[in-house]
Write a protein that binds this DNA or RNA. Structure first.
Lengths: 196, 196
DNA sequence: TTGTTTTGGTGACATATATCACCCTATCTG
DNA sequence: CAGATAGGGTGATATATGTCACCAAAACAA
């Protein structure tokens, strides 16, 4: 148990170290606000209409944020695997009710950070705010790339692009969820990699 | 001329005030790093391969960031009108060469902020960093909405959504550019609002 | 003024992808 | 164990949208 906790701490530490430098005291202070939360496959974490007060840093496993339209068609906004963050950021940042769902694709361990605590630490440790600004910048750039891919590429190249960038998803995530992320029907995706 | 400058200052001030509170001294210090730059319609601001060292806050007029693929098809990532920011953020934040173009849809006045100065002021005035973090958060949420729209809606409803959210674009921007933003051919867009 | 570019409208046709229907095999669950 | 559910494959057909070709008015430039 102790060893496991140490590892969680190190995963977060390395993730943060990529952007900013915190000394041990600063990091431990920031880390103290993260609460370990584990989820089982298929477990719902955020449902449409919920109040959203925290975000999740994924240690292992896989989450997905998604939207289901009137015709029961699911669209996936994001898969979150190791070292990714997930929440309904629209709800979280604008103090609105959730407009998307967050749930668990495969058993997952996460660290939960409440908005309240996040803002508190941002005020107290300037570097933490810098980290979060850069995290947001990177997210923005990632979404821009996805939009370009949706505008510019057909289903096959979007699929190949995704598998090249995140090969771990191939085994971790059922194909119909991949389809829901790419914006194609599961039938079309199936035909894509079965030589039409 | 003096009056015009005052107005520019107020446009930026009001924009920033929506997120954080700066006193006059702090704001004037931040403002002192913004350089007024004006562009003529069709003028190129950033071209693929350029070094990107600054971002632009739009005072009036309209810019677009776009990508042209091998088949000469243009895809528009963003229109930037009054109080929007524009640059190649991938290049700007990762110190890479530009991978998208930025140019001028209609004569525009902007305020240019260099990365170097942005980081300097972020370090010096914590609130400015808070502002930029929230700006990035809002951008992220906006792109998420666009992705959902691309995944969930057909061309017609994407068009209607855009016109409802940004009605000023209807007169400001030629239809084929709207099409390039929505991800449809100009012919299809034309048919959409001419009752098919 | 005159020629050129920009903007945009439309018919005919091509094509990628969605939809529906049905099937099969694992895997889960009581 | 048996039934249910999840995951996945595939043919037939429908449909939204793209592509090509051509036209025309408005805006712009020489």
């Amino acid at each position: 148990m102790y060893l496991l906790l140490m590892k969680d701490r190190e995963i977060l530490r390395r993730h943060i170290d990529q952007t900013i430098q915190l000394n041990d005291e600063q990091f431990d202070y920031f880390f103290s606000f993260f609460k370990p939360v584990s989820f089982k496959k298929k477990q719902s974490i955020i449902q449409i209409g919920d109040d959203v007060t925290c975000e999740y840093f994924v240690l292992n496993g896989c989450l997905k944020t998604f939207f289901v339209n009137d015709e029961q068609k699911m669209h996936i906004l994001q898969f979150a695997t190791k070292t990714w963050w997930a929440s309904d950021y629209n709800a979280l940042h604008n103090n609105k009710k959730a407009t998307v769902n967050l749930d668990c694709v495969s058993d997952a361990d996460t660290l939960c950070l409440f908005s309240e605590d996040r803002e508190k630490v941002c005020k107290e440790i300037h570097e933490v705010e810098t980290f979060l600004r850069w995290r947001s910048n990177k997210g923005y750039i990632g979404l821009q790339k996805r939009i370009l891919s949706l505008l510019n590429n057909d289903a096959r190249s979007r699929y190949e692009e995704l598998m090249q960038q995140y090969p771990e998803l191939y085994n971790l995530v059922p194909k119909h969820l991949i389809a829901a992320y790419l914006g194609v029907s599961r039938e079309t995706l199936s035909r894509l990699y079965h030589a039409r």
